[in-house]
Amino acid sequence: MTTTTKTTTTEKAIIAIPMGDPAGIGPEITMKSLAKKEIYDVCKPLVIGDAAVLEKAIEIVGADLSINEITSPAEGKYELGTVDVINLNNIDLNKLQYGEVSAQGGQGAFEYIKKAVEHATAGEVKALATTPINKESLKAANVPYIGHTEMLEALAGSDDPLTMFEVKGMRIFFLTRHLSLKDAIAAMTKERVHDYLVRCDRALARLGVENRRWAVAGLNPHSGEGGLFGWEEVEQIKPGIELAVADGINAVGPVPADSVFFQALNGKYDAVLSLYHDQGHIAAKMTDFHRTISITNGLPFLRTSVDHGTAFDIAGKNIAESTSMEECIKLAAQYAPKFTANSL
């Protein structure tokens, strides 16, 4: 009697890629990325944008690619050499100037993201891998959001999404984001530290990370040395960590900021809670600028993003580096099978 063994393979996730501001490098780095076999080895990439702009980007980068216009994610071929595109046809090429702020660019970028969110919330795509948008173009189009995070928060109906960076296995969350340093320090209350550790830990769990070990970065030199160099650690940060530990979070700190990121990079911690914007950004980007990827947690779908801008100064010139976009798509594909949409 002969028996056969049935093997199963994990279905590749459909990753939606809104092409970003058409006057920036988004279309170029997307086409460069989708010319590479390793992207199709791990996922099914779907571009949401303007087909004419993407055709122009293919010409600029000299890629051997063709556009396949579709109306729904299920129609895609997802084959190397063919770029599946949901074409919103919302850019006038005669008016498009690379490197220039424009209302049509800002409106277009917003519409690509909006369409991607619609497909994600409908369960038709597993994740978003977003390209750069331009704040001035959004303003010119009267789009009422300053950036991706605020836009996704509103479109998805989420509350205070969490930003996480990942680079070479090091994960960094942010207690504060776009605040002046003075305002960020004022926001470093024990209640906020406690709340963020609990929610960030939940976010890591949704990404499939088990047995999570946390460190909180210090603010002052040597984490304040017990008040010698500042009292924030003593009065707010450490008490916030203690409240989180009481809730079952495996967290330590505050750990001096000049060592905590190195320790996380070498596996001592699964994630670090950075206290303010530049503290974590510098640590990640000095580790590897092009491979630092942003993940927005707290949404009903997974979202990764390049962590650079539209680079208007080099747009349309075929000199934009696509490594970050490639890593952005790959990280979305990596976490997609583990991601759980509902809060734990």
Rank of each mutant, 00 (worst) to 15 (best):
residue 38 E to T: 15
residue 230 G to Q: 09
residue 212 R to L: 01
residue 246 A to G: 10
residue 97 Q to H: 13
residue 257 A to N: 14
residue 338 K to G: 09
residue 194 H to S: 00
residue 165 F to H: 04
residue 151 M to R: 00
residue 119 H to V: 00
residue 226 G to E: 12
residue 237 I to H: 01
residue 271 A to S: 14
residue 305 S to W: 03
residue 266 N to I: 08
residue 2 T to W: 07
residue 233 E to S: 14
residue 99 G to F: 03
residue 49 G to M: 05
residue 146 I to Q: 07
residue 229 F to T: 05
residue 271 A to E: 01
residue 206 R to P: 00
residue 242 E to H: 09
residue 156 A to N: 10
residue 149 T to M: 14
residue 343 S to L: 13
residue 234 V to G: 01
residue 220 N to V: 11
residue 21 D to N: 10
residue 35 A to Y: 08
residue 153 E to A: 12
residue 155 L to D: 06
residue 125 V to L: 08
residue 179 L to H: 13
residue 156 A to P: 10
residue 49 G to Y: 02
residue 296 T to L: 15
residue 5 T to Q: 11
residue 129 A to N: 05
residue 216 V to D: 03
residue 108 G to F: 00
residue 335 Y to S: 06
residue 306 V to L: 12
residue 53 V to I: 14
residue 210 E to I: 11
residue 196 Y to S: 07
residue 129 A to Q: 05
residue 43 C to L: 15
residue 76 G to Q: 14
residue 133 I to A: 02
residue 9 T to M: 03
residue 318 N to Q: 12
residue 331 L to A: 06
residue 330 K to A: 13
residue 47 V to S: 07
residue 135 K to C: 02
residue 207 L to V: 10
residue 200 C to I: 00
residue 154 A to T: 14
residue 43 C to A: 15
residue 148 H to M: 05
residue 291 R to V: 03
residue 158 S to Q: 04
residue 281 H to Q: 13
residue 236 Q to I: 06
residue 219 L to P: 02
residue 102 S to E: 01
residue 10 T to H: 10
residue 341 A to W: 06
residue 163 T to W: 02
residue 269 Y to M: 04
residue 139 K to V: 03
residue 116 A to P: 03
residue 266 N to W: 14
residue 217 A to H: 00
residue 216 V to S: 07
residue 215 A to Y: 06
residue 323 T to F: 08
residue 101 V to D: 03
residue 179 L to Y: 12
residue 305 S to C: 08
residue 225 E to G: 12
residue 278 D to N: 08
residue 152 L to M: 09
residue 161 P to W: 03
residue 301 F to G: 01
residue 60 I to K: 01
residue 15 I to G: 06
residue 128 L to D: 03
residue 283 A to R: 04
residue 42 V to W: 01
residue 268 K to V: 09
residue 254 P to E: 03
residue 111 E to D: 15
residue 259 S to E: 11
residue 296 T to E: 11
residue 113 I to L: 15
residue 267 G to R: 08
residue 236 Q to S: 14
residue 63 A to C: 13
residue 282 I to L: 14
residue 217 A to Q: 01
residue 250 N to L: 03
residue 190 K to G: 06
residue 105 G to Q: 06
residue 79 E to F: 06
residue 325 M to L: 10
residue 182 K to R: 13
residue 230 G to W: 06
residue 172 I to A: 05
residue 75 E to Y: 05
residue 324 S to D: 11
residue 195 D to M: 00
residue 23 A to L: 10
residue 341 A to V: 14
residue 77 K to T: 15
residue 62 G to L: 10
residue 286 M to G: 02
residue 32 K to W: 15
residue 275 L to M: 13
residue 266 N to A: 08
residue 18 P to Y: 04
residue 147 G to V: 07
residue 125 V to E: 05
residue 342 N to R: 15
residue 263 Q to P: 01
residue 336 A to V: 12
residue 29 I to G: 04
residue 8 T to D: 06
residue 273 L to N: 04
residue 233 E to P: 13
residue 219 L to M: 12
residue 180 S to D: 11
residue 25 I to L: 11
residue 276 Y to L: 12
residue 261 F to C: 13
